[in-house]
Design a protein around this nucleic acid. Structure first.
Lengths: 385, 385
DNA sequence: TGGATAATGCTGAGGAGTTTACTAACTCGG
DNA sequence: CCGAGTTAGTAAACTCCTCAGCATTATCCA
C-alpha cells in the first residue's frame, strides 16, 4: 500500500472528477443535487462545475418552466459527446463496430460479414473500412475517438497478440495493435471475446448486480470469461478462463453431440443444425433431447471446474446457443448440482451477439476513466498513448 | 467508480497515513527521507510527523554519533509496538498462534497439540488457552490486540462459519466468530487455511514477486488458495479454490497412491508413510517412483484446471508434502505441460506448516491498515467492530 | 578557530473548502 | 395584486493545508 502524498491541486482535481462522475449517467442536475452526490458543499460544487463548463466538460441548461416551489435551479449536463470510444468485434464471420459517447450511449453500430477464410491483412483492412464507415456515418474522424478496444477469439497477451491459438485464420501472426496504432493515437487495446462478453453482461446485461461472474460462451466454440470482485481478470498471460483446453473437459467436442444427432435435415448449415436440435428437443423429440443432455453433460464438467475454482455468484449462459437456454439451463443446473458444493445462479444472456462489441465499448470507457483519474481533466481531448 | 469528495482534513489524514506507511518497515528515518518517500514537502512532513509523535504513533531517536558532514538529523521511528495482531491456525492435530506487532515482526509463537477428535467446544477452549499463553508470555492482554484472524480447514462463509464441510470434527456447527467476540472487541475474521497460506507465500514466502498465485496445499488433504491481481480471492460464498470437490479431479484419493505403495514399513503412521515413499523414490525405488508418479498424475489434473482457469504466474507447492518437492515438482511440471497452454512457474514453499498462521497475521495486519484508511488515525488504540 | 554542509525552525503567501449571510427568483394563498 | 414562504445563486470571512524561502543551529574538517 504505497499511498503517495496529496497536495491542494490534486485534491481539486479529484473533487472535480467526483463532480464529473456525479454528473455523468444522471439527468441534468442542480448544484444542490451534485453537492449531495459528491459530498461537497454547495459553493465548492458551484466553482468546480463552472470550471467544468468553461473547460467544455459540462453545459448549462437554463431553467425552464418550473413546477416546484422556490427559485428554479440551473441544471448542469455532462457533455457526453465531448469524446467517443469504439468497440469492435472481429469474429470469424462478421465484423461489428459500435461507437459510443462518453456516457455509454451508442451513437453508431455497423455490422458487416467477412470471409471466414480471410487472412489477417484482409481482415484488418475490412476492420478499417468498417471503422471508416461507422465514423463517417456519425460525422467523425479517428481523432475524435478517445479509446479503441478490439475483441478477438483466443487468449490475448499483454502486447495484444494471439500467439497461442485462435480460430481466426493466420491471426497468430497478426499484430492488430500496431495496425490500429497507425490510424489512432489514442489508447488501443485488444481483448479476448469471452472476457468482453463477461464485461458486457455486468454492464448492460443480465449480471449487473453481481461482482463475481463466470460468462460461458456456448456455441460451436465454447469458452469462458471471468469477473471477480467486479473487475475482469485476465490472468498473468491473458489466458484466464481457458479451461476448455483441458482434455478431461470435453468442451472441444461437446457441440458434436448436437451436430451428430439423427434427424437433422441434410440441408442445414453447422450453426443451423444445433438450432434444429434445440427446437426438436423443445418439441419433445427423444433423440434430440438425448443429444442435448449429452452436450450439457460435457459442458457441465468444465463449468463445474470454473464454479468450484471461483465460486461465482452468477454463471451467464451466452454465445450462439443462448437462444436455446430454455432447453439447456435446467439440465445444466441438474448436472452442476452433482458436481458443485454451492450452486451459483444460472442466467441466460440477453445481449445476443453484440455482447463482445458492447464489452469492448465498456473497456474503452474504463480506459478513458482511468486516464482521467491519473492525468486529471484539462480541456476534453483524446488521450494519447 | 463512486469517488466521493475530499476536504482539507481528509487530505491531512491521508498525508499523515502516507507518512505512517513511509515510516513503517524502514529503519528510523529523517524528515528529508520521509519527504522524499511520501512526496510531500519537508515542512509539511515535519508538522505531520510531530503530530504522529504526540499521538503516540512514532517516536524520536535523538541523533547519536553522526558519520556524515553537516548537522545530524533527528530520526523518527514507527512505534510498531503500539498495537499487535494475532494469527491462529486451528488444525486437526495442532493449534498454532502467532503474535505480531504492527510492523509484522513476530513477537510470540505458541504451538500446542490438540486431540484430533476434540469437539468444537473443546477445540475452542484450547484455542482460548493458547491465546492466553501467547499473550501472557508477551505480557499482553486481549485489549492490546487490534485484529485476530483464525484459519480453519474447509470453505468459510462471510459469517465465519464452515457450513459446507471440514475435516475438523463437528466444526460445521461451530461459530468461532461469536466465541472470539466474547473476548476480543477488535475485528475477528475466520479464513480458510489454503487461502491464508497463499497470502503468507506472497508476504514472506516464495511468491513475493508475483501478483497471480495459486497456492497448492499438498498433504493428506489437497486444497488450493488463490491470489489474483495481488489480493486474495474468496469467491462469492468463500468457496473459491475448492476444485478438489470435483470428482473428475481425483484430489481426494490422490494421496492413496502413496499410502498403498508396497514396501511401506507396517509401523509407519499415515503421515510418515508418504514421507517414506518420497524418500524411497528419492533413493530410486521403482515402486515408490511409480506411486509418486501416480500421485502426481492425479494431482496434475486439478492443478491444470486451476492453471487454465486462472493463468497464474506462479504455482506454489506447499503443505505437508512440500518437503518432498524435489521428487514431485519435476513430474508435476511434465504432467502440466501436457495439459496447459502456458506453463506457470512451479515453486516449492519454504514456510512449512507455519504458513497458515503467518497468512492469518498478514490478513489481520491488512484489516488494521484498512481501518486506519477509513477511520483515520487518532491516538493508537484497538479498532472496534 | 573559521568555513562548509546539512538539518531545523519560522514566517508569509497562496489555494481550497466551509460556513454564514445576503440577494434573487419563483410559487402560493389571500 | 401583493406579501409570505421557499429555494437557488453569490460574496465575504474564516480555517486549514501545503509550500517556498530565509535565518538559525549543529556538526565536521582543514
Amino acid at each position: 500500500m504505497a499511498t503517495t502524498g496529496t497536495d491542494l491541486s490534486r485534491m481539486r482535481e479529484l473533487n472535480q472528477l467526483s463532480i464529473v462522475w456525479a454528473l455523468r449517467g444522471n439527468p441534468p442536475s442542480t448544484v444542490t443535487e451534485l453537492a449531495g452526490r459528491a459530498g461537497l458543499s454547495r459553493p465548492a460544487v458551484d466553482v468546480l462545475v463552472q470550471a467544468l463548463v468553461t473547460d467544455g466538460w459540462a453545459e448549462v441548461e437554463e431553467p425552464g418552466a418550473s413546477s416546484a416551489v422556490g427559485r428554479p435551479a440551473r441544471r448542469y449536463r455532462f457533455r457526453a459527446d465531448a469524446g467517443h470510444v469504439l468497440g469492435i468485434d472481429v469474429g470469424v464471420h462478421k465484423i461489428l463496430a459500435v461507437l459510443s459517447d462518453l456516457e455509454g450511449n451508442l451513437v453508431g453500430t455497423l455490422r458487416r460479414p467477412v470471409d471466414p477464410d480471410a487472412p489477417p491483412t484482409a481482415r484488418l483492412s475490412e476492420v478499417d473500412r468498417v471503422i471508416d464507415d461507422v465514423l463517417g456515418a456519425a460525422g467523425m474522424a479517428p481523432a475524435d475517438v478517445w479509446a479503441v478496444t478490439l475483441g478477438v477469439t483466443g487468449p490475448v497477451d499483454t502486447a495484444g497478440r494471439t500467439s497461442l491459438s485462435t480460430p481466426l485464420p493466420g491471426w497468430t501472426a497478426a499484430d492488430p495493435v500496431a495496425h490500429l496504432a497507425a490510424r489512432f493515437s489514442c489508447p488501443v487495446r485488444i481483448e479476448n471475446d469471452c472476457k468482453l462478453s463477461a464485461v458486457a453482461e455486468r454492464w448492460n446485461g443480465v449480471a449487473q448486480d453481481a461482482d463475481d461472474i463466470v460468462f460461458l460462451l456456448a456455441g460451436l466454440r465454447t469458452g469462458a470469461g471471468l469477473i471477480l470482485d467486479g473487475t475482469l481478470r485476465r490472468g498473468h498471460g491473458g489466458a484466464a478462463g481457458e479451461i476448455g483446453a483441458l482434455k478431461a473437459v470435453r468442451w472441444l467436442t461437446a457441440p458434436d453431440h448436437l451436430q451428430s444427432c439423427p434427424g437433422i435435415p441434410a440441408t442445414a448449415a453447422p450453426g443451423e443444425a444445433a438450432a434444429w436440435v434445440f427446437q426438436a428437443a423443445r418439441d419433445g423429440d427423444r433423440e434430440a433431447t438425448k443429444a442435448v443432455r449429452r452436450y450439457t453433460r460435457d459442458l457441465a464438467v468444465g463449468v463445474a471446474a470454473l464454479v468450484l475454482t471461483l465460486d461465482p455468484q452468477v454463471v451467464v449462459y451466452g454465445g450462439g446457443f443462448s437462444r436455446s437456454a430454455d432447453v439447456v439451463l435446467e439440465p445444466l443446473r441438474r448436472e452442476l448440482t452433482k458436481h458443485c458444493l454451492r450452486l451459483p445462479e444460472l442466467r441466460a444472456s440477453t445481449l445476443g451477439d453484440e455482447s463482445v462489441a458492447l464489452g469492448a465499448v465498456r473497456l474503452a470507457l474504463d480506459e478513458v476513466d482511468s486516464r482521467l483519474l491519473s492525468d486529471g481533466l484539462s480541456a476534453p481531448s483524446a488521450p494519447h498513448r
